[in-house]
Design a protein around this nucleic acid. Sequence first.
DNA 1: AAAACGTGGGA
DNA 2: TTCCCAAGTTT
Length: 310
Amino acid sequence: MTAPTKPPHRTPAHPDAEVSPADLHAPVIDWFEENARDLPWRRPEAGAWGVMVSEFMLQQTPVSRVLPVYEQWLARWPRPADLAADAPGEAVRAWGRLGYPRRALRLHGAAVAITERHGGDVPSDHAQLLALPGIGEYTAAAVASFAYGRRHAVLDTNVRRVFARAVTGVRYPPNATTAAERKLARALLPEDEPTAARWAAASMELGALVCTAKNETCVRCPIAAQCAWRLAGKPEHEGPPRRGQTYAGTDRQVRGKLLAVLREAHAPVPQDALDRVWHEPVQRARALDGLVADGLVEPLPDGLYRLPLT
DNA sequence: AAAACGTGGGA
DNA sequence: TTCCCAAGTTT
């Protein structure tokens, strides 16, 4: 009486056919159900604003350092309008030592834009998200996918590494995201919207917990049997070494020291207090000028400085 | 399109 | 101690 049932979609059409992209979805998503970390921005009560705040903070910054700042941030500014109503300098101060403090300024700017243009609600549309300060291709896709369950290729450093290994068969992805990677990510994206969203979170988590940059643990990997890189004998990375960023002695380090002083101070700081953070006057002045130009520091008459009030 | 942009923890 | 790396964006 029943019509012949379709074979499960995971069954290869031909016995020796290559592993199809869809063969990765179920194992990775199942693994995610069992192993996903209980992170605050993944809880339902986080909402889209919580997801968005976490994504800003997680740009180039480890989860462990984000956790405490995230909690304080959401407690103080539970909605975009709350942050928008406060001074940008307060955002920079609350950012603490997360690094790249321009992110704090941009998050504040995004909150203002959301309040003005979107009635205080984080938009779910990728293009509208992309138009907000501090949101690029990755963050727009991440917020749309994680907060709203939309179908987007979410291509961060973790996912890029998982794809590089599992599909392309190399240890590391290229230095910068390529068109080929975007194409692959789109091809691998499940058709079904909720499944696509699960896949995005799951493939990212796999890269973060198992398929890590160093000391990957293939024994815990749900797709080890299909991993092109492992199957090829885990060949070493070819090509130019990925350039490391120097830090000591750079303007960045000086900016960091200057801003640390301003963060701790709750009244305008005189020039000579800032002068003490760095011996070399030319570089010191350049760093301070840069901070002012970036809007991270506000100069006042009489050689006083503070975090920006507007 | 290369380079700037912070910070701290682990190997 | 030094090096590498961590859910990128902007110019």
